[in-house]
Design a binder for these strands. Structure first.
Lengths: 373, 373
DNA sequence: GCAGAGCGTGTAAACGTTTACGAGAACGTT
DNA sequence: AACGTTCTCGTAAACGTTTACACGCTCTGC
């Protein structure tokens, strides 16, 4: 630890024989005579001077930092979103602060008061549960906040969400096209935003396909994890015999594969499987999992850009974006004969966007309409 | 965006009719008369005052922020480490800044100069490749840095590493105990720190077990990813017929499962499989993967604690820790009859620590000895 | 030769805290 | 009643920048 003493503007100014203002100007590329520039450069180099970020922040009133709050940090979909946000904000010259909060709204509210300390210029958050108080606190925040995920009603908060209802619709339609009729649903907790939305989508899709609701074919895992998925799928198969399952995320789908194969059944021959989120896991699983791509990366990118936009224009109109889902078809719903695995080209994995017949009365293309749930 | 104007010490002081020093004292719980405390509390509450983090940082010379630099952000093992570090430093009152750098030493060096701007109080980094210049820059840094991963020779840098050599040894020993003789090795790039160490461990383990080296049984993936793994394993199986494979991480092992089953072979009956890192993926895979636990979470935790320790005592002696590996045995090396999957208790997954007969001449318990590679 | 413009540079204030210091009040001791 | 001690509180300086302002110089144009 050869701690070379920290050098400041003053030290550089003394060594160069100029004022601190001149040093500052040179460091920031503001106009200065060649003679001064040269002397300051030299002195700064010799001292290894780099301007202090904290002092700069205090003066400027900007930290060049953005905070990211995710509730369920174990879920790969949030990891992917985090990376994307990191990419976008880094490119714009911001640092990313990771604030993994608990899943309860209280934790997020704590974070919001903390935010007022001004350690970041803005916040991207993806709350699992949304309460009125949380919404109120977000609106009352002095700093710009972008929310990933659905918000109730018409609150004026920059926000970008997935169309989960349509997403589950894509999954069910696809299964029906494959000739499946007894379509079960493994959900996470329904008191979460995604849980509620996905349940709504499932019921609506059944209606649209003219399929009956069957309480035995629905089960809610305690949370969106693999472990909870094992329990839930076991329970499901103990009480019903579906020919296919839609899982509310890829972790649950992987758990389903595990339970199904352990019972000597085959995927997709005996039970076809669709996951959601289209994370890396869906590709890695064996068999690979057909998954609803809810545009997580795109949502993350959009959210980051919305925040950057608001940072440079605080008075911009509130934007509320909806990202349309697509379906990535893989082995878990493909024809019985599994294709040989060739790393160069996996013919089973392709993007099937809104190609399937639209089942909703109104087209889902209008990104500006109100949240469906 | 109901931007309540930002309130400062001065405003609170005016409203309370006291000096700013008194406000500061009350906010920090320093001794003050009851009357003053009450008036300040009231004024602060009414104004919704929270002290500004930036100003505080400038005055204190501490940001209460710690930076984390990981090269390979896609690898689940780094995600797990990140979460652990986040946990530890958050509990200690620090915020975590995520700096995903590229894998090249140049990127990390950029980060180091940036660090000198003082946006964080310290850094935890896990470089994939280590050059002399990088080491020099780390040593010259004004801020404390803890390195996760092996460093050359005896450089005086706080550091915590895994004993990869022993780790691969555990894997090979286990396979031999299961009666496997033709043990192949799927590695990542050997010009990386972990790649080099794991190759060394493999060769050494073969020697210790009296098994022949066989160039056809070794293959290096282009990087430590699933995709590269598919290619590498395909190549391996095209030119040799191992009865077991050690994979340098879990992603490569999952790729191996895919390729093996696609060829109509079974895991573990035809080819047994051992992964490394013991990430969630090993548990999720089907069959689940026996994996060498290189103590990633413990390494992360130790690194974070080392940094916190140095932050409070800059003159503490340099510490260089080695975390001992363990082996988590799962289905991919278990007896042919796969156990039924019961979420409540998975009998195949258990921790097998150093229980296997030690094969190294010297016991591996001494954590202070020089790096093996 | 001088007013005005234009440029380069320095002085000093400001960002919002923390804290050393000193002034005064309150209290106890002789 | 005088003195020392302790306690409370306010004044002001400091952290390392950026930048408004003013000053002095050179240059142009009459």
């Amino acid at each position: 630890m050869s701690a070379t003493k920290k050098s400041t503007l003053v030290l550089v100014a003394e060594r160069a024989g100029v004022s601190i203002a001149s040093v500052s100007r040179v460091m920031n590329g503001l106009p200065a005579s060649d003679a001064i520039v040269e002397r300051v450069q030299k002195a700064a180099d010799e001292l290894g001077y780099v301007p202090d970020a904290t002092a700069r922040s205090l003066k400027a009133g900007k930290t060049q930092q953005i905070a990211l709050a995710v509730a369920d940090a174990g879920n790969p979909v949030y990891v992917a979103m985090m990376h994307e946000i990191s990419r976008v904000v880094t490119k714009a010259g911001y640092r990313l602060i990771l604030s993994s909060t608990g899943s309860e709204p209280g934790d997020q509210i704590d974070l919001l008061t903390n935010l007022n300390r001004g350690f970041a210029d803005g916040l991207v958050m993806s709350p699992l549960k949304v309460t009125d108080e949380l919404v109120a606190r977000i609106q009352a925040s002095r700093l710009p906040i972008v929310v990933i995920g659905s918000l109730p009603g018409d609150v004026e908060i920059d926000n970008v969400r997935a169309d989960s209802v349509r997403g589950v619709g894509l999954a069910v339609e696809h299964l029906v096209e494959q000739g499946r009729q007894r379509i079960a649903f493994v959900n996470g907790p329904v008191d979460t935003v995604p849980g509620a939305a996905r349940l709504g989508g499932y019921l609506r899709a059944l209606d649209e396909q003219g399929l009956p609701h069957n309480a035995d074919a629905q089960v809610n895992a305690r949370d969106f994890t693999y472990k909870a998925g094992l329990k839930a799928v076991t329970k499901l198969l103990d009480r019903s015999t579906p020919d296919s399952i839609v899982c509310a995320n890829d972790l649950l789908a992987i758990a389903a594969i595990k339970v199904i194969t352990a019972r000597g059944l085959r995927v997709p021959e005996d039970i076809a499987l669709v996951g959601m989120d289209d994370t890396d896991l869906a590709e890695l699983a064996n068999p690979s999992i057909t998954s609803v791509n809810l545009g997580s990366v795109k949502r993350a990118k959009t959210a980051a850009k919305l925040l950057l936009r608001r940072l440079e224009d605080p008075d911009a109109p509130v934007r509320r974006e909806v990202i349309q889902p697509t379906l990535t078809i893989r082995e878990s719903t493909s024809s019985p004969a599994r294709p040989a695995v060739d790393p160069a080209a996996n013919p089973a994995a392709r993007q099937a966007a809104g190609e399937t017949a639209p089942a909703t009365p109104e087209p889902t293309r209008n990104q500006k309409r109100e949240p469906l749930l």
